[in-house]
Design a protein around this nucleic acid. Structure first.
Lengths: 166, 166
DNA sequence: CGAAATATGTCAATATGGCTGACGTAAATA
DNA sequence: TATTTACGTCAGCCATATTGACATATTTCG
């Protein structure tokens, strides 16, 4: 093979002919990059970051959820969650209520204020999604949803499906 | 209306009937969460993180790209890129070559070693994508791809399309 | 009942990956 | 020649994550 034996620069691009899956790999990157940036402007006004958004979203979506459930969704440690959650509680967006049956639990609820902020953060993302779905036919919409479900770890899919569909 | 005038906990969940777009919003979160974690195990062995992966991927995909192009894809500052890029260069995964026409540029190329690592990092993600696509019919596949393209900022779509399709 | 397990919180140190601002250099361009 | 461009770098800081250790209720189990 050629004279370039060294570990010099490789000039041949990786094409989608070589690896067709690259298209979706990269689309996921670009899509997520832009999609998650939507609420940044609003978050800034509250001195919050994306971590606050994620926490508030899931607490708002599943009022009364346990801390452990939230950790399992976010896949972070309780120490990481701690700070962000504390700030959301201190500023009155989330409230903790002792579990009525198991009093070790501290069930998480949004306040009215929390619900309102969550809705405001969801708004631009929902608009983006809505516009995309409107541009697709039913088969396309179903494909998008199925594809994303299949991106989830196989052993998490049922749990996620249950969370989403309620 | 009721007696609960205070800003007490809100107990009503947000349902997908209220906001159908939430399904896709959450699926994007769960999908990305698991999808990007695939290469972590391999990255660990090289003392690299996800930032290294992203940089190596795009340099490998577009050999000879300019630093400015990379910044525009990643949407980070040159200072952030700096550290990660330096480590990839110091460890021999990426090489810089002065631009032949504009010598201010430092064109980025993967080394053979860099190409190999990039392929290894891509592998598990490509498997995940491949399995998902295999489970969809052509209309579903097209829908997934179109949906993700529509998640990208409108004024970025053409640029991204050009990047991907070469 | 007492021991063990569970749910949660917290303190401390550290890593990663981002940011802003300031400044420097070489090369292209006006 | 003056300005702009492409890139790099130093310094400090912020957000978000980690590991490990330890504390406190409360529930469950033997």
């Amino acid at each position: 093979m050629g004279a370039e034996g060294g570990t010099g620069p490789v000039t041949a691009p990786v094409t989608i002919a070589d690896k067709p899956e690259i298209v979706l790999i990269e689309l996921l990157f670009y899509a997520y990059r832009d999609f998650v940036s939507d609420p940044d402007a609003v978050l800034l006004r509250y001195d919050f970051g994306r971590a606050h958004h994620r926490v508030l979203h899931f607490v708002d979506r599943h009022p009364g959820m346990r801390v452990a459930d939230l950790l399992d969704i976010l896949k972070i440690t309780k120490q990481s969650l701690g700070r962000v959650l504390k700030e959301l509680i201190d500023t009155g967006f989330i409230e903790q209520v002792p579990g009525p049956v198991d009093r070790r639990q501290r069930l998480l609820y949004p306040t009215e204020k929390g619900r309102a902020l969550s809705a405001r953060l969801t708004e631009p993302q929902a608009r983006r999604i809505g516009a995309a779905l409107a541009a697709l036919d039913p088969a396309g919409r179903a494909g998008a949803e199925r594809f994303l479900r299949l991106m989830i770890d196989a052993d998490e899919r049922d749990k996620v499906s249950r969370l989403i569909s309620r």
